[in-house]
Design a protein around this nucleic acid. Structure first.
Lengths: 195, 195
DNA sequence: GTCTATAGCGGGATAGAC
DNA sequence: GTCTATCCCGCTATAGAC
């Protein structure tokens, strides 16, 4: 509470990010203007530049935060046990982490084209690191004979695409709860890689 | 050959569509200008309006053509045999149809947000029809006991997401040929739905 | 069917007052 | 930290000559 009275620091910044995330997820980065974001926050367009040097940096920050949060959460999940157990933990973690973050997922997977070359490389590296976690589990299970997949890299991409595709149709007010969804997807994953 | 000499009709139109498809796939609908498309074709921007009433219609035509071609090709594939055989045929058909059409796939799956409400509804109906073909196979196999999936609708979405995700990483000059890819994905699909 | 020219609008980003 | 005002640019779409 030592913050200066009347200052909006620490309040407007997150609001800008939240508004940008929501608008970009809905309409796309190129289609959303700084004026629209400002209006959603309740400020004039010029004020946004107190929080981001430019529009491109704003997009990058959103995507970077999402990927870092994803990797941190995966570290925190502390997967352990047999390859089969770790694969189940990974599957459930992936669904639980992504389902409540539909906007982040849409932005992070659909706006890659709109990143500058350097920003793209950074995001891709993080995404690759995440994929590698899954592939390591598949490789371990392949070695122990628990799994029998045609190719660990291709299976990694196939499983992540399958799990992430969930975002496209899942509605939290639908007929199925998260726990049921998790169970069904785990069932598909488990059988697909089974020896 | 009765076409008037000096007329570009029948030539420029397809060029416009091809250039628009390529540019939109790469940079996104909102980020591509009519001037860019015109430059790629080799005409001035105003000339494009001889081939489309506006930019939105151009996008819709690209997506609509793709979906109609997909459904027509599926009809032409004439799937038959047991549910297991039909599922294999569908899986291989899906991969063979989509792999050489990366631009169409990107546009059709990433530009839905940029369609007008009415155009969106038409494309969604076509996409739904395609999904229904796969779900019908799963239901049939569920009835005969060949398959044991948790939910035919969810499995449909999961399998299509998995198969379409192939577009994101496949490179025709990579280490794997189409036949090998088909085999690996069919392996994953077959096991995932197995009883 | 294509061109040039332009209307009319909205974009990102900055300057300087408060 | 936010405002107003503005610069400069590019956009879609149209008009009218050829």
């Amino acid at each position: 509470m030592a913050r200066k009275q009347g200052s909006h620091a620490g309040v407007t910044g997150p609001k800008v990010r939240a508004a940008a995330l929501r608008l970009i997820a809905r309409y796309g980065y190129a289609a959303v203007s700084m004026r629209q974001i400002a209006a959603a926050v309740g400020v004039q367009a010029g004020a946004l530049y107190n929080y981001t040097p430019d529009k491109q940096s704003l997009l990058f920050d959103l995507m970077h935060s999402h990927m870092v949060a994803l990797l941190d959460a995966l570290d925190g999940a502390n997967l352990q046990g047999s390859p089969l157990q770790q694969l189940e933990q990974f599957t459930r973690f992936h669904i639980r982490f992504h389902l409540p973050r539909a906007d982040d997922v849409f932005v992070s997977y659909m706006e890659l084209r709109n990143l500058s070359e350097q920003n793209f490389a950074k995001i891709e590296a993080l995404r690759h690191a995440y994929e590698d976690r899954l592939e390591a589990i598949l490789k371990a299970g392949q070695d122990t004979g628990d799994f029998a997949v045609p190719d660990t890299r291709i299976t990694t991409m196939a499983l992540i695409a399958m799990l992430t595709g969930l975002e496209k149709w899942y509605r939290s007010d639908g007929r199925l709860g998260v726990a049921e969804i998790e169970g069904m997807y785990w069932d598909l994953v488990r059988k697909a890689v089974a020896a």
